[in-house]
């Protein structure tokens, strides 16, 4: 019996030593799950995903969290990690460009979507109770949300109606549960509700008449600074394996696939 436990302990130790732990900004969790599965099947490399707001993950790495890769939702936090000496500049890469969508619970059922006034019209007409955004200090999507509202000169009027999710996943959850009637979320979170013809790169900025008919509204990119998402290898014992997975994620094949997840590729 004891021998069996010893064997188990040794085996599990082996399993741990070449397991990759990947810290992922909440907006990118869905594609990461799928894509890391593909990678795990083809390479036998086991991958554990940890998600949260970019700021939280960075703070955790700073305090010695055992993450091998950091998929941030911006460039700034990657720069900071390098500044702290916790990551290597050479491994730094852009892996995706995110988009913001104004969304409401109604947008999830297509039948209601046409009957209800569009989210955009409700936002502009101040016809809603709460607008959920991600915490602008912690989540890059939150910062882009505030920038967009300021560009639309709606921010000061709507400020009292803002509800803050700790990360973009909680923000989406507030909208999904209909507790907040409107929310600014990542396109990647709602892409499955959009018809194939409007999804990803083909969902371009609409003119005003189209804007008022659609339930969800893709926030035009010129309203906020671009959400350029960067990844970096965190210094540690798994740097080689981490670099391989990073190379896989920025490969042409995977970058092509990011379109269907609601990202623009590099």
């Amino acid at each position: 019996m004891l021998r069996y436990f010893l064997l188990l302990a040794i085996l599990s130790n082996f399993a741990f030593s070449d397991e990759l732990t990947v810290a992922v900004a909440s907006n990118f969790v869905k594609p990461m799950r799928d894509l890391s599965n593909i990678y795990q099947v083809s390479t036998n490399q086991s991958i554990t995903i940890v998600s949260g707001s970019s700021a939280k993950l960075m703070a955790q790495i700073k305090q010695g969290a055992p993450y091998d890769l950091f998929f941030s939702a911006d460039q700034e936090k990657v720069s900071k990690l390098i500044e702290y000496g916790l990551a290597d500049t050479a491994s730094r890469q852009q892996y995706a460009k995110g988009r913001l969508v104004l969304w409401s619970a109604q947008c999830m059922s297509q039948s209601k979507a046409t009957a209800e006034p569009s989210s955009y019209r409700r936002l502009v007409n101040n016809d809603f109770n709460h607008l959920a955004i991600a915490n602008p200090i912690l989540a890059p999507y939150g910062r882009a949300s505030v920038e967009s509202l300021k560009s639309l000169t709606l921010y000061s009027n709507l400020k009292s109606k803002l509800v803050y999710g700790e990360n973009i996943a909680q923000t989406y959850q507030f909208v999904y549960s209909a507790n907040s009637d409107l929310g600014l979320v990542a396109l990647s979170q709602v892409i499955e509700y959009l018809s194939p013809s409007t999804s990803s790169s083909t969902l371009t900025e609409k003119n005003d008449s189209q804007k008022t008919q659609q339930c969800g509204w893709l926030v035009p990119e010129h309203l906020h600074s671009p959400i350029i998402q960067e990844v970096v290898v965190v210094k540690g014992k798994n740097e080689n394996a981490a670099q391989k997975f990073l190379d896989f994620m920025v490969s042409d094949k995977i970058q092509q696939r990011l379109l269907q997840y609601g990202y623009e590729s590099f």
Partner: peptide, 8 residues
């Protein structure tokens, strides 16, 4: 406090 800690 949680927000402050996360934002370093």
């Amino acid at each position: 406090i949680y927000d402050h800690v996360e934002a370093l």
